[in-house]
Lab assay of single mutants.
Amino acid sequence: METPSQRRATRSGAQASSTPLSPTRITRLQEKEDLQELNDRLAVYIDRVRSLETENAGLRLRITESEEVVSREVSGIKAAYEAELGDARKTLDSVAKERARLQLELSKVREEFKELKARNTKKEGDLIAAQARLKDLEALLNSKEAALSTALSEKRTLEGELHDLRGQVAKLEAALGEAKKQLQDEMLRRVDAENRLQTMKEELDFQKNIYSEELRETKRRHETRLVEIDNGKQREFESRLADALQELRAQHEDQVEQYKKELEKTYSAKLDNARQSAERNSNLVGAAHEELQQSRIRIDSLSAQLSQLQKQLAAKEAKLRDLEDSLARERDTSRRLLAEKEREMAEMRARMQQQLDEYQELLDIKLALDMEIHAYRKLLEGEEERLRLSPSPTSQRSRGRASSHSSQTQGGGSVTKKRKLESTESRSSFSQHARTSGRVAVEEVDEEGKFVRLRNKSNEDQSMGNWQIKRQNGDDPLLTYRFPPKFTLKAGQVVTIWAAGAGATHSPPTDL
């Protein structure tokens, strides 16, 4: 069977082979063929449309019947899901209200924590001031004790010197008594010597008188005998007598002179000795008097100093007792304040721990409710997609609110971060928990396990030699990294520990 286009092609070929045509004729024939082709295509399209309309009418009838069946089946399910969705919305509203209440309680707890922290800071300042005052008082007490020990040692030294001076005074008084006794003995010996000298002088005078009498008696006897002796021998006898008398007189005078000289010499020697002894004793007595006077003056001065030191010692002891009493009071006050502060800190920690436990429990309940609501929403969306139902505006708002919801909680030295990733086909969620104590904190952990970043959050360098970082993902083997023995993380510095297959460059001390 030939198509209209094939017939047109045969006809035009025959005409062209029979007679030659002009260009205008050819153009018109071409346009006519195009119109015929378009008409044929339109006829085919109309036939196809008619057949499709016939099929569409049958399909519409089948769809109508199916919609009636589906509407009867879905009406009950939709009512049940609407009821469950209403319950879920009520639960979500109650959870939102509970969350708002918990946020209010958390803000209240934070305000109480700030207030307690301020009070604690003030108490710590008072405690530091009390400890500083206690240290000052202890230093003052130590200085006073040192001064007291010095004063006591000086007192003992002065008492020793006073005892020595008293012994010296006793010795000097004994020496003075001995000197006085020697002086009295010398004076007695001097008086005795003077008496003996006077006696010797009297004896000498008496001997002179006796010698004169004997001489006169001898002259008288000789004169008497001379009268009786011969005149011839008188001159010879007289001359001999005169010579004998002269010789006797000379001898007697020599003896008297020698005895006189010896007596005067002895007397002068004894007198000089007595005078020297008297002068020496008088000098000793003067020196003893002077030394005794000086000793008395020094004793008086030392007694005055001793009394002054005793007064100072009594004042120091009184002040020391006052300082000890004040120190005891300060210690009791400090202990009482410290006990009160520790009790308040313990109560505050217990209260904060209780509130944190309650908040953690409520947060766990909220997370469980969020997971249940998310599961209900997934089931509802799956059924709506299976039944090709359009979601209600309320469910769209709930989905938008659930997809944009995120929370971040800080308290008790722990930080909890939650992130949620969404897509049109599926939804997944993960959470990161970080707890830090000390100078070094974990700043970031790569989700794909490529690196771990640490930061020194203090103002001092931290030695991290032979420290270890351990990481384990589920049931995978435990991964451990040990820092070099001499590694030190500077204040405020960040160090990144890269995985072996991350392709990073080893560049200490920032990249390991």
Rank of each mutant, 00 (worst) to 15 (best):
K180F: 06
V191A: 08
R235C: 11
T224D: 13
E217V: 13
G232P: 08
L245H: 02
D205M: 03
L183G: 08
E253P: 04
E253I: 05
G232K: 02
R190I: 03
K233V: 11
F237Y: 11
K265E: 14
L197W: 03
L215T: 10
D192M: 11
M187Y: 06
S268E: 15
K208L: 11
K233Y: 02
I229A: 10
K181V: 14
Q246L: 00
I229G: 13
T266G: 05
Y259E: 04
M200E: 02
K270R: 15
E257K: 01
L248V: 03
S212F: 05
E236I: 09
Q184V: 14
A193D: 06
E178D: 15
Q258E: 15
A250F: 13
K201N: 06
E236D: 14
S239K: 05
I210E: 01
A179N: 14
K180S: 02
Q251M: 12
L188W: 05
Q182R: 08
H252T: 12
K208W: 03
Q251R: 12
Y259H: 04
A179G: 01
S268F: 07
E257D: 02
H222G: 14
M187S: 11
H222W: 05
D185L: 11
A250N: 09
E214D: 11
L188I: 10
E223V: 00
V256R: 09
Q184K: 08
S239T: 05
L226Q: 10
D192F: 08
Q184I: 09
E257L: 09
K261H: 12
R240K: 15
K260R: 02
K201R: 15
F237A: 07
R190H: 14
A250E: 09
K260L: 00
K208G: 00
E213Y: 00
M187D: 06
R190G: 13
R190N: 09
F206H: 03
E194N: 10
H252G: 00
L241C: 04
L215D: 10
E236K: 00
Q251V: 10
T218G: 12
I229Q: 02
N195F: 05
V191T: 06
K181D: 10
N273F: 04
M200L: 12
K260S: 07
N209G: 02
D254L: 14
E253C: 06
I229V: 11
E223Y: 06
Q255T: 06
R225I: 10
K181R: 14
Q207Y: 05
L263I: 13
A269Y: 03
Y267G: 01
Q207V: 14
K233N: 14
K260V: 10
E238G: 06
K181Q: 11
Y267L: 02
L271W: 05
D192L: 08
L263D: 01
Q258M: 07
R221G: 03
K219T: 14
D205Y: 00
L188M: 03
S268P: 00
Y211P: 05
T218P: 10
K219S: 06
L188N: 02
E202G: 09
Q258C: 11
E247D: 07
D230A: 05
D272E: 07
E217P: 09
Q234G: 07
K261D: 13
E238W: 03
Q184L: 11
R216K: 13
L188C: 03
L215K: 01
R235E: 04
R216M: 03
T218D: 10
R189S: 05
K201C: 11
Y267I: 01
E223W: 01
K219F: 08
E253G: 11
Y259A: 07
D192E: 02
N209Q: 06
A269Q: 14
R240Y: 08
D254Y: 08
V191P: 02
Q258N: 07
Q234C: 08
I210D: 00
K181C: 14
D192V: 02
F206Q: 04
V256Y: 07
L248W: 05
R216F: 06
K201H: 15
F206W: 03
E214H: 01
E213R: 04
L197V: 07
R220Q: 04
E253N: 13
N195T: 05
Q234L: 11
R225W: 08
A269E: 08
V191H: 10
R220I: 14
F237S: 05
D272Y: 07
S268K: 06
Q258T: 09
E203N: 02
K270E: 04
K265N: 13
E178N: 14
R190D: 01
S239M: 13
L241R: 08
S212K: 04
L263N: 02
R235V: 01
E178Y: 09
K181S: 03
H252V: 07
D230M: 06
A250G: 15
K270H: 10
Q255R: 01
K201F: 00
E238H: 10
R196I: 01
E236N: 06
T224Y: 05
E213V: 07
A242C: 01
Q198E: 08
D230Y: 10
L204G: 02
K261T: 11
A242I: 01
R220K: 13
D192R: 02
E223Q: 15
E214Q: 05
E203W: 00
M200V: 09
Q182Y: 09
Q182N: 08
A244F: 07
E223R: 07
G232M: 05
L271M: 08
Q234S: 10
L197Q: 09
A250I: 13
K265L: 04
D230I: 09
D254Q: 10
T199N: 03
R216Y: 15
D243I: 11
V227C: 07
H222L: 09
F206I: 01
M187L: 10
H222C: 15
A193L: 07
S212R: 12
E257P: 02
D230E: 03
V227W: 12
Y267P: 05
E213D: 08
R240P: 01
R216Q: 13
E257Q: 09
H252W: 02
K181Y: 11
Q255M: 11
H252R: 10
Q198T: 07
Q182G: 09
K219Y: 10
Q246C: 08
E264H: 06
R196A: 01
R235D: 05
S268N: 15
A269L: 08
E236H: 04
D192S: 00
Q207A: 15
E178W: 10
L241Q: 03
F237T: 05
E217K: 14
K270P: 00
L271D: 06
D272V: 15
L183W: 10
D205G: 08
V256F: 11
L245S: 06
E186F: 06
Q246N: 15
T218A: 10
K260F: 11
A179V: 15
R220C: 15
T199I: 02
N195A: 05
V256G: 01
A250T: 12
E253F: 10
E214F: 03
N195C: 01
L197E: 03
E178P: 14
N231H: 12
R240D: 00
R196N: 00
K208S: 05
D185P: 00
T224A: 12
V227L: 12
L226S: 12
H252E: 07
D243P: 00
L271S: 01
K180N: 09
K260D: 03
E186M: 08
Q246K: 15
Y259S: 02
M200Q: 06
Q251F: 01
A193M: 03
D254A: 13
D254V: 06
M200H: 13
Q207C: 03
L245E: 05
K261M: 14
V256Q: 01
Q184R: 06
I210S: 03
H222N: 13
R240N: 06
Q255W: 13
D230F: 12
Q234E: 15
S268D: 05
E214C: 02
L183T: 02
L263H: 02
Q182H: 09
